[in-house]
Every structure is written in C-alpha cells, then in structure tokens.
Deep mutational scan, measured.
Amino acid sequence: SEIVKHAEEALERGEFVRIEHNGRVIEIRNEEALEELRRWVEK
C-alpha cells in the first residue's frame, strides 16, 4: 500500500510519520509500529 511504503521510506531516513486513517491517528516511529500499520491497512 502507498501508506505503508511512505512510512517505510520515512523510517529508513530516520523520520517518523503520523498517519490519519478512518478517523484514527497512528504514529510510525519503529518497525513495531510499521507492522501495526500493515495489519491496520489490510483490514
């Protein structure tokens, strides 16, 4: 997914991403959060 790709690229640069999706906000700061995002987006 485009969202996950964006988050992965930001993590590689040492940045973090805040994503709003279906009214929820998730902050991607590490691999664990990235995995959570993947599960969340796939639903």
Rank of each mutant, 00 (worst) to 15 (best):
His6Thr: 11
Arg24Tyr: 13
Glu15Asp: 10
Leu11Ser: 01
Val41Trp: 08
Val25Asn: 04
Glu2Gly: 09
Arg18Lys: 13
Ile19Gly: 00
Val25Gln: 05
Glu42Trp: 08
Lys43Cys: 07
Ala33Glu: 15
Arg38Cys: 03
Glu35Ile: 07
Asn30Gly: 08
Ala33Val: 05
His21Lys: 05
Glu35Cys: 05
Ile3Lys: 12
Val17Asp: 02
Lys5Arg: 13
Arg24Val: 12
Glu15Gln: 10
Glu27Val: 13
Leu34Trp: 02
Gly23Asn: 06
Leu34Thr: 00
Gly23Lys: 02
Ile28Arg: 00
Glu8Phe: 11
Lys43Phe: 14
Gly23Cys: 07
Val41Gln: 04
Asn22Cys: 10
Arg24Gln: 10
Phe16Ser: 09
Arg39Lys: 15
Val41His: 04
Ala33Leu: 09
Asn22Asp: 10
Asn30Glu: 04
Ala7Leu: 05
His21Gly: 01
Glu8Asp: 02
Glu27Trp: 14
Ile19Asn: 00
Arg39Asp: 10
Glu31Trp: 15
Ile19Val: 13
Trp40Leu: 10
Glu2Thr: 11
Phe16Tyr: 12
Glu36Trp: 15
Glu2Phe: 11
Val41Gly: 02
Lys5Asp: 04
Ile26Ala: 01
Ala7Asn: 01
Arg13Asp: 02
Glu15Ile: 10
Arg29Phe: 13
Arg39Asn: 13
Arg29Lys: 12
Glu9His: 08
Ser1His: 13
Ile26Tyr: 14
Glu20Lys: 09
Arg24Asn: 08
Glu31Leu: 14
Glu15Thr: 08
Ala7His: 01
Glu9Trp: 08
Lys43Thr: 12
Ile19Leu: 08
Glu9Asn: 10
Val25Glu: 06
Glu12Pro: 02
Leu37Gly: 00
Val17Pro: 09
Glu12Asn: 14
Val4Thr: 04
Ile19Ala: 04
Glu8Val: 11
Glu31Gln: 15
Gly14Tyr: 03
Ile3Ser: 05
Glu36Thr: 08
Ala33Gly: 13
His6Asn: 10
Lys5Glu: 05
Gly23Val: 00
Glu27Met: 09
Glu8Pro: 00
Glu31Asp: 09
Val17Gln: 05
Val4Trp: 11
Ala10Lys: 06
Glu15Phe: 07
Val41Leu: 13
Val25His: 06
Ala33Ile: 06
Glu35Tyr: 05
Asn30Ala: 04
Gly14Lys: 05
His6Cys: 10
Glu42Arg: 07
Val4Lys: 01
Arg29Ile: 15
Leu11Phe: 10
Val25Lys: 04
Val17Lys: 03
Glu2Ser: 13
Glu35Gly: 06
His6Trp: 15
His6Ile: 15
Phe16Cys: 12
Ala10Glu: 03
Glu36Val: 09
Glu31Ile: 14
Asn30Arg: 02
Ala10His: 07
Phe16Met: 10
Glu2Asp: 14
Glu32Asp: 11
Gly14Ala: 04
Ile3Leu: 15
Trp40Glu: 07
Glu27Asn: 06
Glu42Lys: 09
Asn22Lys: 11
Arg13Leu: 04
Glu15Ala: 07
Ala33Arg: 05
Glu35Thr: 07
Leu37Asp: 01
Glu42Asp: 10
Glu35Phe: 05
Lys5Tyr: 04
Ile26Lys: 01
Phe16His: 09
Glu35Lys: 07
Glu27Gln: 06
Glu15Tyr: 07
Phe16Leu: 09
Arg18Asp: 04
Ile3Phe: 07
Trp40Met: 08
Lys43Ile: 14
Arg39Ile: 12
Gly14Thr: 01
Gly23Leu: 02
Ala10Phe: 06
Leu34Gln: 00
Arg38His: 04
Lys5Gln: 09
Glu32Arg: 09
Glu2Ile: 10
Glu15Gly: 08
Glu36Gln: 11
Arg38Val: 06
Glu36Tyr: 09
Ala7Met: 04
Leu37Asn: 00
Lys5Ala: 09
Glu32Leu: 10
Asn30Gln: 02
Asn22Ser: 08
Glu32Phe: 09
Val4Gly: 02
Glu20Gly: 03
Glu32Gly: 08
Arg29Leu: 13
Ile3Tyr: 06
Leu34His: 00
Glu15Cys: 09
Val17Thr: 07
Leu11His: 02
Val25Leu: 09
His21Asn: 05
Asn30Pro: 01
Glu2Arg: 06
Leu37Thr: 00
Arg24Met: 13
Glu12Ala: 15
Asn30Leu: 03
Glu20Ala: 08
Glu15Leu: 07
Lys43Trp: 14
Glu35Trp: 06
Ala10Met: 11
Leu37Trp: 04
Glu27Arg: 02
His21Ala: 08
His6Phe: 15
Leu11Trp: 08
Val17Cys: 10
Glu12Ile: 13
Arg38Ser: 04
Glu20Phe: 14
Ile26Leu: 10
Arg39Leu: 13
Ile26Glu: 01
Ala7Val: 09
Phe16Lys: 06
Glu42Leu: 11
Ser1Asp: 11
Glu12Val: 10
Arg38Asn: 03
Lys43Ser: 13
Ala10Arg: 06
Glu32Asn: 08
Val4His: 03
Val25Arg: 03
Leu11Asn: 01
Lys5Pro: 02
Leu34Ser: 00
Glu42Ile: 09
Ala10Ser: 08
Glu27Lys: 03
Arg38Met: 07
Glu2His: 10
Ile28Trp: 01
Arg38Phe: 04
Ser1Arg: 14
Glu20Val: 14
Gly23Ser: 03
Gly23Thr: 01
Leu11Val: 05
Arg29Asp: 12
Ala10Gln: 07
Gly14Gln: 05
Glu12Gly: 14
Leu34Cys: 02
Trp40Val: 06
Leu11Cys: 04
Glu42Asn: 10
Asn30Asp: 14
Phe16Val: 14
His21Leu: 15
Val17Met: 11
Lys43Ala: 14
Glu31Val: 13
Glu9Cys: 06
Ile28Gly: 00
Ser1Ala: 14
Gly14Glu: 04
Leu37Arg: 00
Glu20Arg: 10
Arg38Thr: 04
Leu37Ala: 02
Asn22Arg: 08
Ala7Ile: 09
Arg24Asp: 05
Ile26His: 08
Leu37Val: 03
Glu8Ala: 14
Val25Pro: 03
Glu35Gln: 09
Phe16Asn: 06
Arg29Gln: 08
Arg18Thr: 15
Glu8Thr: 14
Leu11Glu: 01
His6Glu: 11
Arg29Thr: 14
Glu8Trp: 12
Leu34Ala: 01
Glu12Thr: 12
Ala7Cys: 08
Asn30Met: 02
